[in-house]
């Protein structure tokens, strides 16, 4: 199965800009379907980005983060060709992880 995470990490002038797009429904538990049944909450709780074994960014998310969440941040200390690992876990225990190379 294709990864749920799409990542683009670009290094420029010592700063790496990382953009990630995760495919996930992010159901809040407040919404009802057409039959009036509540769609159970299903959202990513934590997403970490690590570089050389060190966490460079940790996102703690609640159900108010949009469907198919997008995230962008910047960090120092990485070089072109380095690998970054992005992982997430949701409230049902589902998780995914991917590794990207910094361009």
């Amino acid at each position: 199965m294709a990864s749920s995470i799409r990542v683009r990490a670009v290094e420029s002038g010592g700063v790496t800009s990382l953009k990630a797009l995760v495919r996930h429904p992010m159901d809040s538990g407040f919404v009802k379907d057409s039959a009036g049944n509540v769609i159970p909450a299903n959202f990513i709780k934590a997403l970490t980005v690590s570089h050389k074994g060190k966490d460079v960014f940790v996102a703690h998310w609640g159900p108010a983060v949009s469907k198919d969440p997008f995230l962008e941040f910047r960090f120092k200390g990485a070089q072109k060709g380095d690998e970054v690992t992005i992982s997430w876990i949701d409230n049902t225990g589902e998780s995914d992880s991917t590794t990207a190379t910094i361009a």
Partner: peptide
């Protein structure tokens, strides 16, 4: 609360996210 982020040393104080 929609989201919060840990910013370790070396990570710039910037974040972009999409919210409901």
């Amino acid at each position: 609360l929609a989201a919060y982020f840990d910013i370790p040393q070396g990570t710039l104080p910037f974040v972009s996210n999409r919210l409901k």
